[in-house]
């Protein structure tokens, strides 16, 4: 067991080297509040690995391991299988990975875990690029966003993780945001209690990678939802619920205008991007509504 060198209010250290204003740090805390100590976590290399620790110093009070970038879901499955073999049904097995480790290199093992129906709770903190290696574009990077490997702005759209998850007909999947912590925690709770694989895909503002003032992390999470850039919905036993049904969307500039990753866009391009995001919000939500009629 851990030698507790420093006290902490919860299961997560207070002094963690996540950047100031890091959205992931808050997600990790809220996740730990929900799952509690009877949990085994799998974290791949990436920003969340700061919570794995360095040398003998760890940042979490729970059991866990840091395996490869592409096998978070498979490693979680292995732990679940061992617990099943031991008759342990109470321990939560949690995969906690970023967008690169989930939507890119980890997608295959995630799909395998979903398809087998292994009881694993999976949280994807989506900061929309490979932040830990220095802001390289991922398949979760939104269109037009500039990263070190998409310096002129990404030309393709963001990959849709929820649709992939739903295609596996897992018991529970949801998108979430830091804008509403009660909603986030409620979804984490449902994911924890799901009778099979579950996914919580959390939009994760990253001051370093998105290039904004760290004080604005929550404001931008909120703006993403209000502008329709991030759509909050749940898929629960086949039923879809849109959590933020909006008739009118906030001005796109309240979201993209505050981020350096969209700074290269001129006024016209920004308007065009705003239009795309708006159109997508309404077509996507109406598609979700049609999908939820069974």
């Amino acid at each position: 067991m851990y030698d507790i060198k420093h006290e902490a209010k919860g299961l997560v250290t207070h002094g963690n080297s996540a950047c100031a204003g890091c959205g992931l740090e808050l997600i990790m805390r809220k996740t730990m509040e929900v799952v509690g100590p009877d949990t085994i976590i799998v974290i791949p290399p990436g920003c969340a690995a700061m919570f794995s620790g360095f040398g003998k110093e760890g940042g979490l009070k729970i059991a866990g391991c840091q395996m490869n970038l592409e096998n978070t879901a498979a490693c979680a499955s292995g732990i679940r299988a061992a617990l099943n073999a031991q008759g342990n049904t109470h321990t939560t097995v949690l995969g906690f990975a970023g967008d690169g480790g989930t939507l890119d290199i980890g997608l295959q093992s995630l799909s395998g875990m979903f398809e087998r129906g292994d009881r694993v709770m999976y949280v994807c903190y989506d900061n929309e690029a490979y932040m830990n290696t220095g802001v390289q574009g991922s398949s979760a990077t939104p269109a037009s966003a500039s990263t070190t490997t998409t310096p002129g702005g990404k030309t393709s759209q963001k990959k849709d993780l929820m649709m992939i998850a739903m295609a596996h007909r897992i018991p529970y999947a949801a998108t979430a945001s830091l804008q509403n912590l009660n909603d986030l925690k409620k979804k984490l709770e449902k994911a924890k209690n799901a009778n099979g694989p579950s996914l919580v895909h959390v939009h994760t503002p990253c001051p370093t990678g998105w290039r904004f003032n760290p004080a604005l992390s929550i404001e931008l999470a909120r703006a993403a939802v209000r502008t329709g850039a991030w759509i909050l919905y749940e898929y629960e036993n086949g039923k879809i619920t849109i959590n933020n049904k909006l008739t009118e969307l906030a001005e796109i500039d309240t979201y993209i205008g505050k981020q350096g990753r969209f700074k290269h866009l001129n006024a016209e391009q920004k308007t065009e991007l705003g239009k795309q995001i708006k159109d997508n919000y309404f077509t996507y939500t109406s598609m979700l509504e049609r999908m939820s009629i069974h």
Binding site: H6, G15, G59
Partner: peptide, 28 residues
Amino acid sequence: QQEQPMKMLKKRNVLGPVATDFTAANTG
């Protein structure tokens, strides 16, 4: 920083990479 000594359990050697201490960096 608060420093609290762990209750005096016996320590044993373990092999390979493992974090065994719960610590906090002085991020202040």
